[in-house]
Nucleic acid binder design. Structure first.
Lengths: 251, 251
DNA sequence: ATGCCTTTGTGAACGCGTGCACAAAGATGG
DNA sequence: CCATCTTTGTGCACGCGTTCACAAAGGCAT
């Protein structure tokens, strides 16, 4: 969802499809769990089940990384953990700054899933003087004024924005200007960034709205609608059981 | 484990493609902002820019809802806000329970984006006796023991899980048994649910890992690798940078 | 009215992602 | 060493989603 316009060519990074990249962390998590249980090898079927995907898809995903399996046996867990970690860039250290130390920022700072991977919170930043100086998740909160210095000194390339929508673009601009090239945005806003900067967004409200849509549909099927509605003067009625849609015209 | 399996037919709900549904909240947000500025109409081009998408895509998305635009003019903002809200099911009230009142749960409870849409937090639940009885975001925290009662009494159909991975499946099962049919899962686990129950997941760690992948790739291109890899038996490398693909997907 | 200008709505082409189904590869036992 | 059995890796086909490009539709000025 990188915003910056840029009609993105759905780019397949380094030969590995985006969809596959998005699933690698899933496999990694499942593999890590197996590793902790000292399971030596795992079949595509087992691993797929654990990761919640189709086994054929999993095998195809792995095929993009190389042939790391043994036919008739399966995959070596430890080896695969390493390969995926390396592929994702988790074998190196990624200093991260979190801008905005509200509940969400604090939740992230406390989240164990970061440190266990290669992520290290280099700094927590907030604009509120009441927060700066205090300690959250064992780390001191710095003032946003020091953003540029902190990013530069720590070689931070990943920034997390957990402030209200209003100031997000400005903080984003400052992060980018300071050298950050990847941003995880929790603010409900479209961020525009220059070419070469990646933005991923997480919008809690949007997720709920999508659920509401499906929920409504379920309720509608069960109860209400008699399955076919009377007036549908609009575009050629498509196959689907659609219908509904009032004919009222805009002002 | 028999995870949700259910080779979901990429379900096109009610004729509206999933991908379109996922973008409707985006449009709605942009439209709401325009509405607050009392902008009467907007062209697909303007709205697309505001929402961070391609204008052709936006028009096609809207075409699934019906013909709500006026050629030569654009779309009536208020009217479109209403239509999308109705389509998403936001014109009705959705009671929601949040299970797990840690930082993340508290962040969600405080999030204004819910109330402004049709979402109402019916209850905050936590297992920790130290929390139950206390007030978070102006709401009392109830004990998880009361989950079933609260879900039933309030007719809750949407549940949010913000507890550690360990207890997620169990809470999920209880929610489903009590009547919840849509779940937003923040725990880093694959939840298995019966047919008919929707699960969407948000995994903060996964998002960062995806960013790390692209970050590593960028660094590799600039510095290390001689721009073309020796052993690259894979698909032809494409031009443009990054791609996107939400790490949030239907289970 | 008529013609021009703007913007929508959509047919069509294309590319990515998914899943099937099977041949190749390797382990294992006799 | 050979036969058999298991599981990988992948060619292929199909469907969804995206984008282009343009005809149709409506507003507006003359």
């Amino acid at each position: 969802m990188a915003t910056g316009r840029t009609h993105r060519p759905a780019t397949r990074s380094r030969g590995i499809p985006e969809a596959t990249v998005a699933r690698l962390p899933l496999y990694l998590r499942a593999l890590t769990a197996l590793s902790e249980r000292s399971v030596p090898t795992v079949s595509s079927e087992e691993l797929a089940t654990a990761a919640g995907v189709n086994s054929a898809k999993l095998r195809k995903d792995f095929s993009y990384l190389g042939s790391y399996g043994t036919r008739g046996v399966g995959y070596d867990v430890e080896y695969l953990v390493y390969q995926i970690s390396r592929e994702l860039g988790l074998t190196q250290d990624w200093p991260v700054v979190i801008v905005g130390v509200g509940n969400l920022g604090a939740a992230l700072a406390n989240y164990g899933g970061f440190a266990s991977r290669g992520f290290r919170v280099a700094a927590l930043l907030d604009q509120d003087p009441a927060l700066t100086g205090r300690t959250v998740a064992g780390m001191p909160v710095s003032h946003t004024d020091d953003l540029e210095r902190i990013v530069t000194e720590n070689g931070v390339s990943i920034g997390v924005i957990t402030i209200p929508a209003g100031g997000a673009q400005q903080v984003c601009d400052r992060l980018v200007a300071a050298g950050v090239t990847s941003i995880l945005n929790f603010a409900p806003t479209v961020l525009s960034v220059p070419e070469g900067v990646d933005v991923r967004k997480v919008d809690l409200s949007i997720e709920l709205q999508i659920l509401a849509f499906h929920e409504q549909r379920k309720a509608g099927e069960d109860a209400t609608a008699p399955a076919d509605l009377p007036a549908g003067p609009h575009t050629t009625p498509r196959k689907g059981p659609d219908g509904d849609v009032p004919a009222v015209m805009p002002a």
